[in-house]
Simulated assay, not measured.
Amino acid sequence: MTDKTLDVLAIGNAIVDVIADADDAFLAGQSLDKGSMRLIDEGEAVRLYGLMNAGREVSGGSAGNTAAGLAALGCSAAFIGQVASDELGDIYKHDIEAEGVRFLVPARGDVGATARCLILVTPDAQRTMNTFLGAAQMLEAKDVDLAAVASAKILYLEGYLWDPAQPRAAMKAAIDAARAAGTRVAFTLSDSFCISRHRDDFLALIDAGRIDILFANEAEITELAGERAFEAAVAAVAARVPLLVVTRSAKGAVAIAGDERASVPAEPIARLVDTTGAGDLFAAGFLAGQAKGKSLETSLRLGAIAAAEVIQHYGARPEADLKALAAGLL
């Protein structure tokens, strides 16, 4: 087995988030489903951006956010994702490296524009995401650093990246390398729309033993299991994967590994501002615990702490000192 010098290697969409306030009337006027994520083309991205309130640009992307959270917790993290040779690509690379994450894929000039996600945040802190994938969907299998995969304790993959064919091939190559090197594979379902499009693929990965840690929220686990009741869905999926982690927003989170089950409540917060990145940062905390050999309960607590920090400000990257917030747990 290769020496594990890297805690987590994340693969995902390299996206710059543009975050702006909106009200329910604006969402209704644009026929947007509050709290959802939809894929849009470049023309729609330009149109919607022109209608939005003034926005704030923050580097994002689900797995990238998780990698940033891991680095903030003191873990060694690296990220694989494709950006273009443009202004947003430069912003993305600068931001993630400034946060202490190794960025392993060079920018390219032949992949269109760097991806961006237009995020509309309503007064109830729900975020409605409109994603133009651009260069992110051009990630190729040859861009996967197989040595980095082998050196990682955990490989973390986002379901959002499963949609385009090229990144899907890259993720499959990474899983193959991880299985050969004894690297644990963690996978997040990302969104119910991903499951509706790729449920059979995701279940095939699980049943083939290619996923060690599966992350889901309440809506996603019921969608994947085809069960309306939460506990029935959890039981059905937990029987098929070594470690299942399910977040439940204000109701906390649970983790099941065989006969072991742990749960934690949500961390108290002063004010809910923006739920963007809550699941990403929860995954960061949980994976940090797992990479450091902590128990399920401690890993869940770390996830809850990281998620609570990020929902109290705009943007999906941590702003407070996560190591201080997690003192004594890592």
Rank of each mutant, 00 (worst) to 15 (best):
P167R: 13
A208F: 01
A181V: 09
P164M: 11
A141G: 03
S190A: 06
A165T: 14
A174N: 06
M171Y: 03
D191C: 03
L189H: 05
R168I: 01
A147V: 10
L155W: 06
F187T: 07
R199C: 04
F202E: 05
A178W: 04
W162Q: 13
E158P: 13
L189Y: 00
W162I: 15
Y160T: 14
S192M: 00
F202H: 05
I154A: 00
F202C: 13
A141V: 04
S196L: 00
A178C: 08
K142S: 15
T183E: 02
A148Y: 05
M171D: 03
T183R: 03
F187L: 14
P164D: 09
R199N: 04
A165E: 09
K153P: 07
L157Q: 08
L146W: 01
F202R: 03
L146S: 10
R197E: 10
D191Y: 01
M171V: 13
V149F: 12
A180Q: 14
F193L: 10
A141Q: 07
Y156H: 14
D207G: 04
L146T: 01
I175Y: 00
L155M: 05
I195W: 10
F202P: 00
K172P: 00
L205V: 03
S196T: 01
S190V: 00
D143H: 14
L161S: 13
A178V: 12
R168V: 07
D201W: 09
K172E: 07
R184A: 11
I175H: 06
A178H: 06
Y160F: 15
G209I: 13
A208N: 06
S196A: 10
D207K: 11
F187H: 08
H198Y: 07
A173M: 05
A180R: 08
R184L: 12
F193G: 09
A147M: 08
W162H: 09
P164Y: 09
L205G: 08
S192A: 01
I175L: 07
A147T: 12
G209V: 14
T183W: 04
G209L: 15
L203C: 00
I175K: 11
A152S: 12
C194A: 12
I195D: 04
T183S: 09
A141I: 02
A150R: 13
I195C: 11
A169E: 13
H198R: 12
A150F: 02
G159L: 11
A178G: 10
V185F: 02
I154T: 07
D163G: 15
V144E: 01
A178Y: 06
A141S: 09
H198P: 02
A208H: 01
A152D: 03
A174Q: 06
S196M: 01
P167S: 08
A178I: 10
A173V: 03
E158T: 15
S196R: 10
A173F: 05
K153Q: 11
F193Y: 12
G209R: 15
S151L: 08
F187S: 07
L146G: 05
A150T: 08
Y156K: 12
K142T: 13
D143G: 12
A208I: 00
